[in-house]
Design a protein around this nucleic acid. Structure first.
Lengths: 396, 396
DNA sequence: TGACTTTATTCGAGACTTAGATTATTATCC
DNA sequence: GGATAATAATCTAAGTCTCGAATAAAGTCA
């Protein structure tokens, strides 16, 4: 029932502290005075609060800014080395584990190839666990400094401590990935759909930055997405919201891997595009094959653009977002040459008022965005709690 | 950036007061002890808070509950006569103005017929203004007791004090209905899309009750909807979210009144159903015509059910709601005889996991739900502010 | 009537923010 | 080059709020 959670003044402090830390994290270095303006807090409060945070080493000074006639402002920023986060991307062909500092600078990386036919849960879990240890030692940080691990996987992740994963691509019916990993590490753990983690990466560090109502569409071999309402990812009742790939756009259309017909994914995913163009390509060759197709041109591409426009139109009518970000390697390729046409196709299917408030742009991040976004799940929690109690370990 | 608004302890009090009042409003009469459990506040706080509210006459005692061996609990409830709200439904054929107490008991009603071809904004505004005065005097309440006026209109309502309305049905391009009304009344005013107000009515008092992530689909002559996320209506950047009627489900399909093709509304709205069945009926006859069609049966109806299933599938994939409410007179008629088929058609197009968490049910409220829901906009603000400062008058 | 139970209120303590005064640090002006 | 003005950060006193514990109130049951 949308219960608001303010209760005691301790919560007020926690909340204000989180607000301040968040402002400092996203709006770069800022002086205490700037923070007063941004947060609406009084100077006194900002002063004591920043004093605390400085004492805890969560934030550090970052130089001064010269002022004409007066004491110069001391700039503050989040200490990027206060802690580290691990992001994991469980992909079709490999498991990628990366270590980031709080500024999202990569500190170490570990890759493990996976044969596309063999995604045994235990094997994947072992790769992840080994990878975590590997990047921590390679990055030269002590395990105690690691704030947590975020994992992006395909499919739907059920809420709960077990983090049951249903991923048809891997043949995973109800794999308790969370439980498997928790058996091997005591770090706080966050498991979420990879398209959502990537969406969060675009929202925080890509072209979605600064928006609060946004749709991120991820077009790779297949199609996924993230819906951002009010600045945070909307997950729905069972974490299954945002399944953009299975939006029905053609009644009784092509068969999709999900078993349904006419899904968006069955038309605009790279796999589907190539298939419709009559090109055979295994997953390793898809990228070059699609590039070639884009060069030579094909009526299939025109149809793809039209259908993508229909899909985007649906998203606009339902969400009325301020921005739509098209990402994923295939999305970026397609957008690079056809963005104008995509916009036109969308406009043709959309009411003028909501259309004009939605800017359709391409994503900025590369394929490592999934791991990066997974790591931001940990940071999101860190910013919410302002100081991280290492015991918490739920998802979302 | 999703700024949380806790600042000082005065806000804490306001927030807690609102939480308590909300609990009391929705979970009926409750004792102070119950309120401790529900809100998580301490007995002391509940006691002082309820003392205040009793003093302000916002809440009243509602009898005792006998206890075996102990002081009996005094039940508290919102005072339904603390204030009154006006709800307005601007429909195709009439303007309906109703006065409610806080319990949503109707106290007075005024209807004004409008010729479907003539929806001059000034005329509509005059009807509304006259209606407001009429129901206030008929209801025997003093204008000072009226907390505000909510208005439900077709089309998209732009945010802002003017409440620009774009309603193609009425030929309204950018009618500043808010400004027109404010010129004639000083009551706090809330203007919103009629489908959204109806959705809120179903959410608060209908079959959506108790849910937080819900989609309400309104099928009348045409099709609209409401998307509820986290217990409140999701409106998007420009208040245009939830345009379910213009979801594209058939590529290059039937022409819709919006100018697009293949919209849901062009298939499952009553107007569209009758048209597809080759039945001519003006708006007054639609209801009986559809009833007759449902009795005799028709392949058009089967197709309608299938397409509705596709539309609902899209909604489930995007929102993963816990409940879908089908309302509107045509929706209720269709659902009364075909709910099982609708569910089956939806299941056939939807991933099993999100499908099984979404219960598809029929709405409970009749056609006066639009006005009722409009009135709840005022109550929503009242519950948020806990005590109503009569000056506030923005929408949403 | 008196012991026992449960509900509601009161009171002191603790926590937190704020406005305003104070201290710190620099640039400008004569 | 030193006094002065200006801006930044900190300190202090005051006010508000919730909480826990103690106290009062209102019953039941034997």
């Amino acid at each position: 029932m949308g219960r608001s959670e303010r209760r005691t003044m301790r919560d007020v402090r926690r909340g204000n502290r989180a607000m301040l830390l968040r402002a400092l994290y996203f709006d770069g270095p800022a002086s205490r005075n700037d923070l007063c303006d941004v947060t609406g807090l009084s100077g006194a409060t900002v002063s004591t609060m920043t004093g605390d945070l400085l004492g805890d080493n969560v934030i550090v000074e970052a130089g001064h800014v010269d002022s004409d006639g007066g004491r110069p402002r001391v700039l503050l920023r989040v200490n990027p080395e206060y802690g580290y986060v691990v992001g994991v991307d469980v992909g079709e062909t490999q498991v990628r584990v990366e270590l980031f500092d709080l500024d999202m600078n990569e500190r170490a990386r570990a890759l493990y190839a996976v044969h596309s036919a063999r995604h045994e849960p235990e094997l994947v879990a072992r790769h992840i666990l080994v990878g975590i240890d590997a990047v921590i030692s390679e990055g030269g940080v002590s395990p105690g400094q690691v704030l947590g691990v975020g994992v992006g996987v395909p499919g739907i992740v059920e809420p709960g401590p077990d983090a049951l994963v249903r991923a048809k691509t891997f043949g995973w019916e109800a794999v308790p990935l969370g439980a498997l990993l928790r058996a091997g590490t005591s770090l706080p753990l966050f498991v979420d759909n990879g398209a959502k983690t990537m969406g969060q990466a675009e929202l925080w560090f890509g072209t979605g930055r600064g928006t609060t109502d946004t749709v991120v569409m991820l077009i790779g071999s297949r199609v996924g997405g993230t819906i951002v309402t009010d600045g945070t990812i909307y997950r729905g009742t069972g974490q299954a919201a945002g399944e953009i790939g299975h939006l029905k756009i053609v009644t009784g259309g092509r068969l999709c891997k999900c078993g349904g017909r006419g899904c968006l994914e069955a038309y605009v995913g790279a796999e589907a595009i190539l298939d419709r163009a009559g090109i055979e390509a295994d997953s390793a060759e898809e990228e070059t094959a699609l590039a070639r197709l884009l060069e030579t041109g094909s009526p299939v591409l025109d149809e793809t653009v039209d259908l993508l426009g229909v899909g985007l139109s649906n998203l606009i009518h339902l969400f009325n977002p301020e921005r739509i970000v098209i990402g994923g390697w295939a999305g970026l390729m397609l957008g690079a040459s056809r963005l104008v046409e995509i916009r036109a196709a969308t406009a043709a299917n959309t009411l003028p008022q909501p259309y004009k408030t939605a800017s359709i742009v391409l994503g900025r991040l590369g394929p490592d965005a999934v791991a990066m976004g997974a790591a931001t799940l940990v940071i999101e929690r860190f910013l919410k709690d302002a100081t991280f109690p290492a015991s918490i370990s739920t998802m979302s």
